[in-house]
Simulated scan of single mutants.
Amino acid sequence: MAGRGLDVEGWIAREGALSRVPAAFTGVVDAARARVAKSFDGGRLHSAYLYGSIPRGTAILGVSDLDLLLALRTEPTEADRAAARRIEQVLDQSFPQIDGVGILLFSTRTLLSELERHDLGFFVACLCTPLLGADLADHLPRYRPTPLLARETNGDLSLALPGWRRQAADATTDHHRRALSRLVARRIVRTGFTLIMPRWGGWTSDLSESAEAFGPYYPERAGQMRRAAVVGRTPSPVPGVLHELIDDLGPWLAAEYVTVHGEKAVRP
C-alpha cells in the first residue's frame, strides 16, 4: 500500500503534476512556459520543469514563489543566465499571485551524470514536473529513501553556512532579511528531514510535515525545526531569526548530518 510519498512498490513517487497547479496560478505557469520557449528557442532548450509548492498544489497566493529548472543541451552561458534573469523579473513583476521567481540552469549532461545521480538526477526524476520538452526522468532510475540519497542530497550543509553568515551581515533591509530567512529555513528544514528520512521510511517536500517527522528523532531540536518550517513558509525580517538558523540550528545539523550519513561527494 502506498504512503509517505512512496508508490505501492516502495519507490519515491513523483510529487507534482500540472493537474495539481491551483487555478489561481495557471496563468503564471502558462506565461512561464511561453517566456521560456521564446527566450530559449533555436534548439538551446532540451526541457523545462516546475518544482515547489505550485505543482504540488500547496501554493499560497501572494506568498509562494515560482520555481523552474531549465535543462539546456550544452553548459549554461552568461547569455543564458541573463535571459533567465529577465524571465524572473518579468514574471515576478507581472503576477501578484507569486512572491519571487527562481530559475535553475543546468546542462543535460550534468543532470544525467553519475555524480549527480542521487542529487540533481533525483531532483528531476522525483521533485520536478515536466513543463516543456522530453522528460529526462525517462533516463534516470527510480529512488528509495536510502542513506545514499540522504548523503548526496544534503550532505554539504556546512558549505552553505559561511556564505549565509556573510549575507546576513550584509542584509540592510527587511526585504533582504526575509528573502534570506526563507532560503535558509527551507534548506535547513529539508536537511533536517533527509537526516531522518531513511529511518522515517518515506519522502515529503512539505515543510510542516518534514519538521513533524524530524521531531521524534531529535526532540531537543524539535521546536527549532518547527519554527524554521514556519519561516520557510512566511519569511521573517527579524535578525534574531537568522541568527538562530545560521549560528545555532544550522551548525548542529551540519555536524550531526556528517556523523550519521557522511559528507556529500565533492563536486568540481
Rank of each mutant, 00 (worst) to 15 (best):
E78N: 07
E78Q: 07
E78T: 03
D80C: 01
R81E: 12
A82L: 13
E88N: 12
Q89M: 10
Q89Y: 07
D92W: 13
D92Q: 12
Q93H: 10
F95G: 06
P96K: 13
P96D: 09
Q97N: 11
Q97S: 14
D99L: 12
D99I: 00
G100D: 09
G100H: 09
V101C: 12
L104R: 12
L104W: 09
L104N: 11
L105W: 05
F106W: 13
T108K: 13
T108V: 15
T108M: 13
T110L: 10
T110G: 01
L111N: 00
L111A: 05
L112F: 00
L115F: 02
L115T: 04
R117P: 06
H118N: 12
H118Q: 05
G121R: 03
A125M: 06
A125R: 15
C126T: 14
C128I: 08
C128G: 05
C128V: 07
P130R: 01
P130K: 01
L131H: 08
L131P: 09
D135N: 15
L136F: 11
L136H: 09
A137T: 06
D138K: 15
P141L: 13
R142S: 13
P145W: 14
T146S: 15
T146G: 10
E152Q: 15
E152K: 05
T153R: 14
D156C: 04
L159W: 00
L159P: 00
P162G: 09
P162D: 06
P162H: 07
W164Q: 04
W164R: 03
W164E: 06
Q167D: 13
A171I: 10
D174M: 08
D174Q: 13
D174G: 15
H175T: 13
L180D: 11
R182G: 10
V184C: 08
V184N: 05
R190H: 11
T191R: 00
T191D: 00
G192I: 07
F193W: 04
F193G: 03
I196W: 00
P198M: 12
W200F: 15
